[in-house]
Design a protein around this nucleic acid. Structure first.
Length: 490
RNA sequence: GGCGCCGUAGCCAAGUGGUAAGGCAGAGGUUUGCAAAACCUCCACCCCCGGUUCGAAUCCGGGCGGCGCCUCCA
C-alpha cells in the first residue's frame, strides 16, 4: 500500500506524490528563541524526525529544514528584561533548543536557517510583493493586503469576509484592512534594525519562513509542517504571501501535529502555569521514554502530559530493554551496534525464519503508510517482542546449543532493529554507571552477585534473599536466570 | 458566535462497514529454592438517541461532553 498523508489544506488523506521524483523537501516551523524549550516544542521535531526517517526508509532523498526565528517583538521585550542583547538571548535559547533536539535523537535536520541571516531575501520578497500590488508600505511598515488574494483563508478554511469582520482584530490607521499583516516592521530607536527601502526595520513574523523555505527548498516543495496552533494566522499568511510572490503552489502537503496539554490545557509559553521545561524532563527521563510519549498516539491528536504518564511508558519499555539484554547474552552482540536495513528495498534480505515476525513487520509498515500511524505501529513492536521471546523460550536458547534457532532469533531481532530505527527509538543504550565514569559500582555488584551465588549453592536462601531485598531497596534488581545472575539499576 | 478536532476497558491507545491491536494497572497459571524476567490465559455490548444497511465503534442526522484556532504560541 502506498504512503498516504492527511493534508490540512484539503482536509483529506492523499497519496504521496513528490514534486521531483525521489526527492522530498520538508519545512517545519521552529521556535522563536526568546525562552527555553518546553515539552510542547519537542513534539513537532520528534514527529517530523520520525517522518523523515520513514521517508528515507522508503527511499526518498529528504531535505529537512527547521527555521530559527531570532528577531521578533518577544525577543526584544525579553532581552530588555534580562538586560542582554537580542543576539545573546537568541544564541542562548537556540543552544538549549539544539541540546534538547540532540538528546531526543532528532538528528535529521539538514538546515537551520536564522531569520537574521536572511534579511536580504526578505527585503527582496517584500519589495516584489509591493511591485506586484499585493503589499503596500505605510509609515515605515509594509503590509500584505489580504483583499488582493481571493484565496486567502484556504488553508485554515476560514471565510475572508468573516476574518475581516472579526471584532478581535483591531483596525488601525496605518492598515488598509484589519486582517492585513506586516511583512516588514519599522523599528523604534534602540531596537534591532536593518536598512530597507522603507527605512530601518525588521521582518514581520511570517515572512522569514516564506523566504527561507523557498531559498532552501525551492518555490514549490513537498511538506510543510508545524503545530496545529500555527495554521492560522502563521501558515495561512505564509501560503498567501509565498504564492502571491511566486505564482506557484507553495507546499503540496500541510501537516500539523496536535498540541501537548497538561491536565487538559494547552502547554503554552504565554500560560506559565503549564510550562514544563524540556531540559528538566531530560534530567529525569530516558529520551526513548519521551519520544514514546510523542509517538504512542497519532501525531494529529493532542497528547495529555500527566505526572504518571512517563513512568507508565517507561515501564512498558522495559520489555524492550529486557529483550536487548537477553539478545546480548545469547549472541554476544549489542542490540545497539546491530546492523539492520535502513531502506525498505532491502526487505528480501531480512525475510526471517519466524513467520509472525514478517507479519508484524508488514503491519507496522502499513500503519506507517497510513498517515504515519505511529500508535498502531507501536503495537506491532510489542507483538514483535513477544514473538521473539516466545521463540527464544520455545527453543530454550539459553540452555540448548541450537545454532540454527539462534540464527533465526538473531534475524528476528534484526527486524526489530530495522523498525525501531524508523521511530528513532533505542538508538543508544541507556546511561548506566559504567558510562558515567563510575567503574566501582559494577565491580562491587559483581562481587556481591558472586558471593551470593556461593551462598545460594550452599542453600542458604535466607541470606541470598536478604541480599537481593536490600539491593532492591537501593534500586538494584537481581535476576537469577538459568545461565547466571544479572543485575540492573532502575 | 464562526471554523476545525475529539469522545473505544480503571488509565493511555490502534482500529473508519463484517461482530474490538497494543501498553500500564489487575486476576489466574507455567517457570523459579523463592523472586525477577519471560511465556500462556482472563478482563470492553466502542458518550447518548434516532436513521441507512443483511450487518456500524466505523456512514448520516440530532443531542451531550471535552479541546484547539479565530490574539503571541510547537
Amino acid at each position: 500500500m502506498p504512503l498516504r498523508l492527511y493534508n490540512t489544506l484539503t482536509q483529506t488523506k492523499e497519496p504521496f506524490q513528490t514534486v521531483q521524483p525521489g526527492k522530498v523537501g520538508m519545512y517545519v516551523c521552529g521556535p522563536t528563541v526568546y525562552s527555553n524549550s518546553h515539552v510542547g516544542h519537542m513534539v513537532g521535531p520528534v514527529i517530523f524526525d520520525t517522518i523523515k526517517r520513514y521517508l528515507v526508509y522508503l527511499g526518498y532523498d529528504v531535505t529537512w529544514v527547521v527555521n530559527i526565528t531570532d528577531v521578533d517583538d518577544k525577543l526584544i521585550v525579553q532581552a530588555a528584561k534580562d538586560g542582554v542583547t537580542v543576539k545573546d538571548l537568541a544564541d542562548r535559547v537556540t543552544e538549549d533548543y539544539l541540546h534538547c533536539l540532540h538528546q531526543l535523537g532528532v538528528d535529521g535536520i539538514d538546515h537551520m536557517p536564522k531569520a537574521t541571516e536572511h534579511i536580504a531575501e526578505i527585503v527582496e520578497m517584500t519589495q516584489a510583493l509591493i511591485n506586484k500590488g499585493f503589499a503596500y508600505a505605510s509609515s515605515g511598515d509594509v503590509y500584505f493586503d489580504v483583499t488582493k488574494a481571493p484565496e486567502y483563508g484556504k488553508l485554515s478554511h476560514r471565510d475572508p469576509e468573516a476574518l475581516q469582520a472579526g471584532a478581535r482584530i483591531e483596525p488601525t490607521a496605518i492598515k488598509r484592512n484589519p486582517g492585513d499583516f506586516a511583512l516588514w516592521k519599522g523599528s523604534k530607536p534602540g531596537e534591532p534594525a536593518w536598512e530597507s527601502p522603507w527605512g530601518p526595520g525588521r521582518p514581520g513574523w511570517h515572512i522569514e519562513c516564506s523566504a527561507m523555505s523557498m531559498k532552501l527548498l525551492g518555490e514549490h516543495f513537498d511538506i510543510h509542517g508545524g503545530g496545529l496552533d500555527l495554521v492560522f494566522p502563521h501558515h495561512e499568511n505564509e501560503v498567501v504571501q509565498s504564492e502571491s510572490y511566486s505564482g506557484k503552489t507553495f507546499a503540496t502537503y500541510w501537516l500539523h501535529n496536535g498540541l501537548l496539554t497538561k491536565a487538559g490545557k494547552k502547554i503554552s509559553k504565554s500560560d506559565p502555569g503549564t510550562v514544563i521545561l524540556m531540559s528538566d524532563l531530560l534530567r529525569d527521563h530516558d529520551p526513548d521514554t519521551l519520544r514514546c510519549l510523542f509517538l504512542s498516539s497519532h501525531y494529529r491528536r493532542p497528547i495529555d502530559y500527566g505526572p504518571g504518564r512517563l513512568d507508565e511508558i517507561s515501564r512498558g519499555l522495559e520489555a524492550f530493554r529486557s529483550l536487548f539484554d537477553r539478545f546480548e547474552r545469547l549472541t554476544g552482540t549489542s542490540f545497539f551496534t546491530l546492523e539492520a536495513p535502513t531502506r525498505k528495498s532491502d526487505e528480501e534480505k531480512v525475510a526471517s525464519s519466524i513467520p509472525e515476525i514478517d507479519e508484524h513487520r508488514t503491519r507496522f509498515l502499513e500503519a506507517m503508510d497510513d498517515d504515519f500511524n505511529t500508535g498502531g505501529a507501536f503495537g506491532e513492536l510489542y507483538e514483535l517482542v513477544r514473538a521473539l521471546n516466545r521463540f527464544a523460550d520455545t527453543h530454550k536458547l539459553e540452555t540448548a546449543a541450537d545454532p540454527e534457532a539462534l540464527a533465526g532469533y538473531r534475524a528476528g531481532v534484526v527486524v526489530l532493529k530495522e523498525l525501531t530505527q524508523i521511530l528513532g527509538l533505542f538508538l543508544h543504550p541507556r546511561v548506566q554507571p559504567e558510562a558515567t565514569g563510575d567503574s566501582l559500582t559494577p565491580k562491587l555488584l559483581e562481587l556481591l552477585v558472586n558471593l551470593r551465588a556461593r551462598v545460594r549453592k550452599e542453600k542458604n536462601f535466607a541470606l541470598a534473599d536478604d541480599i537481593r531485598n536490600q539491593l532492591a531497596e537501593m534500586g538494584v534488581t537481581l535476576e537469577d536466570r538459568p545461565d547466571g545472575t544479572g543485575w540492573k539499576i532502575s
